[in-house]
Amino acid sequence: MSLVSLVAQFRQSLPSLQSQYEGKWVIFRESGIVGAFSTFKEAYEEAYRRFDNDSSYIVEQIAPPQEPTPITAGVLFGLC
């Protein structure tokens, strides 16, 4: 599953995950959540230990959808 598809699946699942995992950082795969942690670092390190860099997972926080990050890189890197 591609990164884009995995992120889309996570965003779709987000409302149903909020009551159980609110505020947690989770390892999310095609099969769903495989671990929940207090910090991004903890989640990332566990994901790396278990799955290496195999692109089969994402690390996300269970929180309301984030607003787009304003960034001047849009200008510097030709994104605009």
Partner: peptide, 13 residues
């Protein structure tokens, strides 16, 4: 390195 997620960003546009 491989990506661990995607984030929405927005520039001046």
């Amino acid at each position: 390195l491989t990506p661990v997620s995607m984030v929405p960003i927005v520039g001046v546009s």
